[in-house]
Nucleic acid binder design. Structure first.
Lengths: 152, 152
DNA sequence: TATAAAACCATAAAATACCATAATTTAATT
DNA sequence: AATTAAATTATGGTATTTTATGGTTTTATA
């Protein structure tokens, strides 16, 4: 799976259909499931999205943590219960379920936001706000993303 | 991936296409993705550029940090949301998106500036200015770049 | 049978591939 | 070292494809 990068603003039609950006589609093109998995973000008013293969990796990651980890139980309960697998139609569109749209405050336009191994779907104005906040934080804190030297 | 070195001034055509310097192209020639990734610098009025493989390393670095790391959230949010994967055409050109050009104040000419594992794209005059400032700082501060002995 | 969901068809705009040429750099030859 | 030849690189314009988006028809379902 290649990365989800960049941001794309697309429109929902009267039937709730919206084009998944072509670049995001090609990110999952090699997978068995021709579509994406969406769920309501735990932390933001937005929709989280990932590939089915990544969902499967999360499943096996939770396996590693043992059966009696209650915290993780809550997490996986939420995650897997809330997750919606949505298949692309012929032209690469999906219809996002009502409750997800509600959670993100999306009406007729949405922004697909790349996050590397995952992506998010936002109400355009809500996204601009949080993006400005993030930029502000960045300029103040200058966090450092370190890459081990042997990684190149 | 070999290093991005030296500086090259190239012109944009009417459609916004610009040749990536041949030397930079050969720096990423061995990679799967035949192109580069660009994003607006957080700190300067210029465009940052790197290889896709470097982007992927950043992605896995953020993965290591766990799902609920908020500081890194800001960084990766900005970075991945803003990053544009741009594929070379047959002759080695890319088209730099409007908003990136605007951010860097680039009109019809741009300088590709090598930065080792990454590079930058500048408005030519803006670059000359900042370059002079950098040289001044260097002469005053004489910082020391240390190399571990086993690194060669 | 009514209603929702999926499949199908159409199109304008944008992105990309294609072709051609000028300029520059590198290599070869005298 | 100077000159010529070859190859590479940068640049310009056109044609084709892809993409996003809208609408209609068919199929499944309650």
């Amino acid at each position: 799976m290649s990365l989800f990068l960049s941001s794309y603003e697309n429109r929902l039609d009267t039937k709730g259909r919206i084009s998944v950006p072509a670049s995001f589609r090609s990110s999952v093109a090699s997978e068995n499931f021709s579509g994406v998995v969406l769920y309501r973000s735990f932390t933001n008013n937005c929709i989280e999205g990932l590939s089915m293969s990544r969902m499967e990796k999360l499943a096996s990651a939770t396996d590693q943590m043992g059966v009696f980890d209650t915290e993780l139980d809550d997490l996986s309960a939420m995650l897997f219960a809330d997750a919606r697998p949505l298949q692309f139609d012929v032209t690469g569109r999906i219809v996002i379920p009502e409750d997800l749209l509600l959670h993100a405050g999306i009406k007729d336009t949405a922004v697909f936001v790349g996050r590397g191994n995952s992506f998010q779907i936002w109400n355009p104005t809500a996204f601009k706000e949080i993006q400005n906040k993030s930029l502000g934080n960045l300029r103040k804190l200058r966090p450092n993303l370190k890459i081990k030297s042997d990684d190149n």
